[in-house]
């Protein structure tokens, strides 16, 4: 069903769009990219193994923080929630992490365009006959983005801790492997993505009207604003880095190949 383009009084054109460029390509790429990540995430979550490489102290980001008594020894963090062995540990944390991405202002744009075609591209007629945007349930819940931002900060802190312990050398001391480098890049990208969030920008200073009375908050706002300009790039870079690190740790933990050690 297509929304009529010939409303009363408007210029009558039969085409859905007169755009001549490949407007369908960006939403298609987004659709494929996000779908691949979701499929990988689902498979990985229910795999429930090969997430901890004890000899290198590598913990896969999908399983971090590991908060279940079913976590393999060495992988668990801080406290353990008593859960049956078949229950995948990521299910405790993933709703918060996914919620942060799902309600993110960039991802909203991405999936509204590519999954819901609302609109598929600028000046291309959308295929829905009715539209209420984010003014009704369930999309009104997008306003809870800031409540996912706070747990996302904690998760970024935990992944930073995971990166620090990944500097553990084989047999003791300090060591660096390819996994350590990948985890370090991932932690930096996750912090950059989390701090570049629009809600963060608002909370650190955007909500005030007199920057001159709050020089520290103004400084923080300018820094977040700089990062915020790259929010889309950081969203994709951190998404890819999470998947790459997770895959690498899975392959190392599964014994497909050993970690490439750079130091130690």
């Amino acid at each position: 069903m297509s929304a009529p383009t010939t409303r009363a009084g408007r210029a009558r054109t039969s085409a859905r769009t007169l755009r001549t460029d490949r407007w369908w390509l960006p939403p298609l790429v987004t659709f494929v990219g996000l779908s691949l990540f979701v499929i990988y995430g689902l498979v990985r979550t229910f795999m429930n193994q090969w997430y901890w490489a004890p000899e290198y102290h590598y913990l896969a980001p999908f399983y971090s923080p590991c908060l279940s008594t079913s976590c393999v020894p060495g992988a668990s963090h801080l406290f353990d929630v008593p859960l049956p062995g078949w229950f995948p540990p990521p299910i405790i944390v993933l709703p918060f992490v996914l919620g942060f991405r799902l309600t993110c202002y960039y991802y909203r744009k991405a999936y509204y365009r590519s999954f819901w075609a609302s609109p598929p591209a600028c000046a291309v007629t959308e295929p829905h006959s009715r539209y209420t945007g984010e003014s009704r349930f369930p999309l009104i819940l997008q306003n809870a983005h800031r409540y996912f931002f706070y747990p996302a900060l904690l998760v970024a802190a935990v992944l930073t801790y995971d990166t620090v312990i990944a500097f553990h050398g084989v047999g003791g001391g300090v060591g660096v492997g390819l996994g350590t480098v990948l985890m370090l890049i991932n932690a930096v990208l996750l912090w950059a993505y989390t701090l570049s969030c629009h809600s963060c920008r608002h909370l650190v200073g955007g909500r005030i009207n007199h920057f001159s009375r709050h020089p520290v908050r103004y400084w923080m706002w300018t820094q977040v604003t700089k990062l915020n300009g790259r929010h889309m790039m950081l969203a994709w870079a951190s998404l890819i880095s999470v998947a790459v690190v997770d895959l690498y740790v899975m392959l190392v933990a599964g014994g497909v190949f050993p970690d490439l050690r750079l130091i130690n």
């Binding site: 202002y105 744009k109 609109p119 539209y131 945007g133 984010e134 003014s135 999309l139 955007g206």
Partner: peptide, 30 residues
């Protein structure tokens, strides 16, 4: 609430005003 921040307004602005990032989203946050 009808705005689903798909940024087409920003894309077409001939004055390159960051309509979505600097006005609509901050307004949604307020």
């Amino acid at each position: 609430g009808m705005c689903n921040i798909t940024k087409c307004c920003t894309d077409v602005c001939p004055e390159h005003i960051q309509i979505t990032d600097n006005s609509l989203i901050p307004l949604k946050e307020r």
